[in-house]
């Protein structure tokens, strides 16, 4: 354990059941996300990966359905449902499958607006954070001369990096990524994978992916979700090299999709 790395788990999910409009979506889910790791969640479409991710920052609550949760979801030992949602979400950033920058705002404002809303008023400080965040995601060189152009002018891959920069600007402790590379070009996707391995020095990343190979490349731990159930989870090598469950075995070699 390096200095500064807590032994405490970032997330501790125990016996989680999630119901949306009285339909069970997640069943009896238990796992722990260790600090400063990349935690992959993989599984076929409709297995509940994204939903599970959105429970972690309580984003699940913003949709129309009626939510019922059983079991515990602890964030650094605190029950997330007892926390103030905005405070939780500021610390637990999120990146979505389809890049969702504020299309009508400028590149600069995409990062600056949330900062201002969170109380950072000093323009130079904002500019510093904007530059720092854009550099982290390697977007700075591409956009530094057109920071005030609308975000809609960027390519899909650039937009995705912008949304990552926007999340990073708030200095989150965790970054949730919901299939961040599935809708963008290969080069940007590689850049983002590279970024994920760099970012884990500073934060914990929970990565949802329907691509087991990507999970294998970047994740330290991996959970395999199937039909709303957690089939198994553990260190990546274990899950890929010696899965305990037959379903997992089939999935990692591509027999289930």
């Amino acid at each position: 354990m390096e200095a500064g790395k807590g032994t405490e788990d970032v997330f501790n999910v125990h016996g989680l059941h999630l119901y949306i409009n009285d339909r069970v979506i997640l069943k009896d889910i238990t796992f722990k996300v260790p600090n400063n790791s990349v935690f992959g969640i993989m599984g076929p479409s409709g297995s509940g990966k994204s939903t599970l991710l959105k429970v972690l920052n309580r984003l699940i609550e913003i949709y129309d359905g009626e939510i019922k949760v059983e079991g515990k979801v602890l964030y650094f030992g605190k029950d997330v449902f007892q926390m103030e949602a905005s405070k939780l979400r500021k610390e637990v950033g999120m990146v979505f499958q389809i890049p969702n920058p504020f299309h009508h705002l400028s590149i600069y404002d995409n990062i600056a607006y949330p900062l201002k809303s969170h109380g950072i008023k000093d323009k130079r400080e904002i500019m510093r954070i904007v530059e720092e965040s854009l550099r982290k995601v390697r977007l700075w060189d591409e956009v530094h001369d057109r920071l005030h152009a609308p975000a809609s002018h960027l390519s899909g891959g650039q937009q995705q990096r912008l949304t990552i920069a926007r999340a990073l600007a708030l200095r989150p402790k965790v970054l949730l990524m919901d299939e961040p590379t599935s809708m963008i070009d290969v080069v940007s996707a590689q850049a983002i994978e590279q970024l994920i391995t760099e970012l884990k020095k500073e934060m914990t990343i929970v990565l949802v992916s329907h691509n087991p190979q990507q999970v294998k490349r970047v994740a330290d731990y991996v959970a395999f979700l199937y039909n709303g159930k957690l089939v198994e989870w553990g260190p990546t090598e274990e899950i890929f090299d010696s899965p305990r469950n037959e379903l997992t075995q089939k999935y990692v070699v591509g027999l289930i999709d």
Binding site: M94, S117, H118
Partner: peptide, 24 residues
């Protein structure tokens, strides 16, 4: 809805949501 997702995932609230939607 992706605007709502972006706003809330950044820890912002209804105020920012309404402001951003109106400007949108």
């Amino acid at each position: 809805k992706s605007v709502d997702e972006a706003v809330y995932s950044l820890g912002l609230g209804k105020w920012e949501l309404v402001v951003l939607k109106l400007s949108y």
